Computed example of a mutant assay.
Amino acid sequence: MKIAFYGSSLVSSYWNGAATYYRGILSALARHGWDITFYEPDAFDRQKHRDIDPPSYARSVVYPATPEALRDVLAEARGADIVVKANGVGVFDRELLEGIIANAGPHALKIFWDVDAAATLDEMRGDASHPVLAALPDLDMVLTYGGGPPVVDAYTGFGAKRCIPVYNALDPETHHPVAPDPRFACDLAFLGNRLPDREARVEEFFLKPAARLADRRFLIGGNGWETKQMPGNVRHRGHVYTAEHNAFNCTPRAVLNVARDSMAHIGFSPATRVFEAAGAAACLITDAWEGIEQFLTPDSEVLVARDGQDVADHLAALTTERAQAIGQAAKARVLAEHTYELRAVQVDALFRDHLARQAVPA
């Protein structure tokens, strides 16, 4: 049973926030017997900033970002039972989507896997010629890594045959408690790349509390922040490799999650960082968004902030003992209910059900 997966990158998280999600889902699916090939273009210096070697659970194919190489890798879709195009590859996104439809075998399951559904839907609403909108009649289903009922309703309203959220989760073998690392010592840490639809919320939920709590130490990790003006008590770490995430989460008194505008607006969209932090037993402060209770219980497993003042108030009142209690409770919750193994059970059942129905004569 073969999966051909066309995405941004499996081996690098550099300008690629979906890497943790891909690794968690695909490694768990491999344990269910799936033979996976992941196709990624050599683009955006991702290959120069690899986090991992090619993994044992998937064949990693890195192809030159050229039309000729694109045709070659798309031709391999013909031999797969499941053909997936993820969004946000960054190059040839339209051609990849059209290509999986054109090249997939007649009985293959054709999937668009949207790891930024709220933003994609906003684009579709404003562009009648959007490639995803054009592809929906030929796709068997859309999978998303968040969004809940609003995203499902929107996608089916646009004509998707099926839309099913497969939420972010935890791989406990990758993200878990480790010893503190003085490089990441601070009172509050935030990890995320600088993106246009996130920057204003980072200013509100991270930089404003830093300015108000001048006696506290703040740390920001991720790409693009080196030119951002920040208070003097904020350090910028730059790109934080996956192997450093556990120490980044375990060392500070608390870590902050800040959703992008579209994800915060639509709700039901916990970022990978939420589960990484919880798996490391970090005390997480998150901006408020609808559906948080589905994943973590406010006040006992996560602290929820409506604005920057709430973040400052949480941090000012947070003792070491309470931070540890919240972190341990969050870890227990995600291990019980939100692991990639549980997500893989869901996806495996979807895939096998489709293949079984395709095998039944009309």
Rank of each mutant, 00 (worst) to 15 (best):
residue 5 F to L: 10
residue 11 V to Y: 04
residue 16 N to T: 04
residue 20 T to E: 14
residue 21 Y to V: 08
residue 29 L to R: 14
residue 36 I to M: 08
residue 41 P to T: 02
residue 43 A to M: 06
residue 47 Q to G: 05
residue 47 Q to D: 13
residue 58 A to K: 13
residue 61 V to N: 02
residue 61 V to K: 05
residue 69 A to K: 11
residue 76 E to N: 04
residue 81 D to R: 07
residue 82 I to W: 07
residue 87 N to F: 10
residue 93 D to V: 01
residue 93 D to H: 06
residue 96 L to N: 00
residue 96 L to T: 00
residue 98 E to Y: 12
residue 104 A to V: 02
residue 104 A to L: 01
residue 108 A to N: 04
residue 108 A to H: 06
residue 109 L to P: 00
residue 110 K to P: 02
residue 111 I to Y: 07
residue 120 T to P: 01
residue 125 R to A: 13
residue 135 A to K: 07
residue 142 V to I: 13
residue 144 T to F: 03
residue 152 V to P: 01
residue 152 V to H: 04
residue 153 D to L: 11
residue 155 Y to D: 01
residue 156 T to G: 05
residue 167 Y to G: 00
residue 169 A to N: 04
residue 173 E to P: 00
residue 179 A to I: 03
residue 181 D to G: 11
residue 185 A to E: 15
residue 194 R to V: 00
residue 198 R to K: 15
residue 201 R to S: 07
residue 205 F to Y: 15
residue 227 T to N: 14
residue 232 G to L: 11
residue 237 R to A: 13
residue 238 G to M: 06
residue 246 N to F: 03
residue 246 N to H: 05
residue 251 T to K: 14
residue 255 V to D: 03
residue 260 R to M: 07
residue 271 A to N: 14
residue 272 T to V: 15
residue 279 G to M: 08
residue 285 I to K: 10
residue 285 I to H: 09
residue 288 A to G: 07
residue 289 W to E: 14
residue 294 Q to M: 08
residue 296 L to T: 09
residue 297 T to N: 02
residue 300 S to R: 15
residue 301 E to L: 04
residue 303 L to Y: 12
residue 306 R to P: 00
residue 308 G to P: 09
residue 308 G to N: 06
residue 310 D to W: 10
residue 320 T to E: 15
residue 321 E to F: 09
residue 322 R to A: 11
residue 323 A to M: 09
residue 325 A to T: 10
residue 329 A to K: 11
residue 333 R to I: 04
residue 333 R to Q: 12
residue 342 L to C: 00
residue 342 L to D: 03
residue 344 A to N: 05
residue 349 A to W: 13
residue 349 A to K: 13
residue 362 A to K: 12
